[in-house]
Design a protein around this nucleic acid. Structure first.
Lengths: 137, 137
DNA sequence: GTGATATAGTTACCTAGGTAACTATATTAT
DNA sequence: ATAATATAGTTACCTAGGTAACTATATCAC
């Protein structure tokens, strides 16, 4: 087996999927990196930037940028923690109102992308990839 | 099933794998994007930039940059085609000398990354992902 | 309490890929 | 033959993520 191939395919897939999701989200005013953060905040509630970084396995600097963009767009607010170094981030009312639209758009494109593989293997593939990643990290 | 999860996992995996491969390649003087091009040129021979782009499903501008870096490092040379718009790219002697080192490094890290999943499922997973990507693109 | 160390977040600059607009050459229509 | 169109590659600027060095606050040793 050619081991280069599987890594190449994963990268291709990752780029392709992200591009397709961005195509849907861009007209709705956000990018996929922002959606990822919004989604986490919606499901987990208020979190520090550090916690968001850990949850998404993204380094602090890109997260600072994504959050600053969400701040200027008014989709997120910062609340200083008791520990003054910490900044708690939470969704604004505006973001909560728009959330259903964003969610519907992503769910729809997700389904359309997943429809390219037999639905009985979705769960297995997901578990396999998740298990692999967990082993690695 | 949460459809967001599988896309998220694929992105995480992709970033993680690329970072690990870069860790190995950086001390050897190249980055993973350059390695991808070098690998294609080694297996396919001389190609136009267009052909490399198509093969790797990468847009022309990032490819121009990668190739320009390979040019300044002396790992690649451009040859004007009969069609004067085209530039045929091929590996230099220097690159061919270093190729075995790069290949050994990537094969080793590939194996180590793949060892996190049972080896009997490597081929199946690879085929599944490849099939999915093919369906999509 | 003060000095050393650790931590949260930011800034500057890096790789990696994408789109739009451009240049230069080829091709096609008439 | 020339005007219109298409194509290969480049340039400028965008999203997305990473590392190193920095600031400001907390904690720990003593």
């Amino acid at each position: 087996m050619n081991t280069h191939e599987i890594f190449h395919t994963i990268n291709q897939l990752s780029r392709y999927l992200t591009n397709r999701i961005n195509e849907e989200l861009k007209p709705l005013g956000i990018y996929s990196s922002q959606w990822t953060v919004i989604y986490v905040l919606k499901t987990k509630g208020s979190l520090t930037q550090k916690e968001i970084c850990q949850y998404l396995a993204i380094e602090a600097p890109p997260m600072t940028r994504t959050i600053q963009r969400l701040l200027t767009q008014g989709y997120v607010k910062q609340i200083q923690g008791k520990d003054k170094r910490e900044k708690y981030i939470q969704l604004t009312e505006v973001a909560l109102e728009k959330y259903p639209t964003w969610e519907a758009a992503t769910l729809q494109v997700n389904d359309s992308l997943l429809s390219a593989i037999p639905s009985h293997s979705h769960e297995e593939l997901s578990q396999q990839l998740k298990g692999w990643y967990k082993q690695l990290s």
